[in-house]
Amino acid sequence: MKDIRQLKSSLSTLFQEQFFAVLATRSGDSIHTTLVAFAASDDLKTLFVCTPRATRKFANLKQNPSVSLLVHNSSNMATDIRQSIAVTVSGTAEEVPADRLEVARAVYLAKQPHMSGFATSPNTAIIEVTVGRYDVVAHFQDVTILEIQKDRIVPP
């Protein structure tokens, strides 16, 4: 990646283009992965997913909020290994509290409008993942880390 803005812009594009991510949650020593429809906030600091509360992933993330997601644009071709981009997202998951629910749902449905029935169902929780870092893999082995440093003093 040539520079940080270019990297962020390619992440934004990837998150707009890809509907699905693989979400990894953990219970004790077991890792559990599931395919989820997701959306990302414009500032790339938060990812949103929806899940019924009775699922294993929901139980896991309640127990251990450290989660990881994999988003990629591979199309199952041999040449993807060089051409595709894959992003591992590491972050902390929690159910969106009621006072921010509407905003979160709007972001999610703007990307996944066909999921409106699912996202508004009473037993569905909207989960927000606060991103700690991205590991971006391009050209097969080119790995760049994009970290969000909350304690960094940002000049105005």
Partner: peptide
């Protein structure tokens, strides 16, 4: 020269090919 900081985002290389 490569820009590696943007607001509170910081970029660093982990693996280069």
């Amino acid at each position: 020269m490569v820009d590696t900081v943007d607001g509170d985002f910081v970029m660093r290389a982990r693996q280069l090919i």
